[in-house]
């Protein structure tokens, strides 16, 4: 059994590949199930056919669709979210930020750090200002707490998914 993980912001979806049936040298059938609360739900059979180096997919082995060409490993866009698909395991250090951690949602430059280490902050208080594409964006605290660590400097250019600051929740 092979497990897939989909990184959906702070939620992770876990999908099991439950069955693989090889029909011929160019046709394989997979059965996927979504794992939720230790139960299987949303089971789906997908047929994959390889023709001329391209992959075609179908749910019923009758109506075929070609996947648009794109690179592996796979990320895919679902309307307003860019999701990553990991096969088997999830590399450490990617996503999964704990509550209270401020992670860049997009690449940008730190314009101003508003809070100091040890500051008491409240939920949705602005802590850092990031500039990206001619616009300033306020990064707000998602919890009430105390600023524990500041990991970036003003003027620093950051990639997506970088931890900028940690906030310790207040009990």
């Amino acid at each position: 059994m092979r497990t897939y993980l989909i990184d959906n912001d702070k939620n992770e979806h876990c999908i099991d590949l439950r069955r693989t049936t090889v029909h011929s040298s160019e046709l394989v059938e997979f059965e996927f199930s979504l794992v939720k609360d230790l139960h299987y739900s949303n089971t789906q059979c997908i047929f994959v056919r390889r023709l001329a180096g391209q992959y075609f997919v179908s749910t019923d082995n009758a109506h075929w669709k070609k996947l648009a060409r794109q690179d592996l490993p796979t990320i895919f866009l679902n309307v307003n979210k860019v999701l990553s698909i990991y096969r088997g395991y999830k590399p450490s250090g990617i996503g999964g930020a704990s509550d209270g951690g401020l992670v860049t949602q997009m690449p940008g430059k730190v314009v101003k750090i508003v809070a100091k280490v040890g500051d008491k902050v409240t939920k949705s208080q602005t802590l850092i200002i990031i500039e990206a594409m001619k616009m300033e964006n306020e990064v707000k605290s998602n919890i009430d707490g105390v600023v524990k660590e500041i990991l970036v400097k003003e003027g620093q250019a950051l990639d997506q998914g970088i931890m900028m600051m940690t906030v310790e929740p207040q009990k």
Binding site: E26, I46, R50, F76, I85
Partner: peptide, 25 residues
């Protein structure tokens, strides 16, 4: 009015093609 529902079918299709490529299909 934008529908942001997760497109499971596409996710499954992408995973199926990754898996197919891995098994050398």
């Amino acid at each position: 009015k934008i529908n942001t529902e997760f497109d499971w079918m596409r996710a499954f299709q992408v995973m199926a093609s990754i898996e197919a490529r891995r098994m050398g299909l």
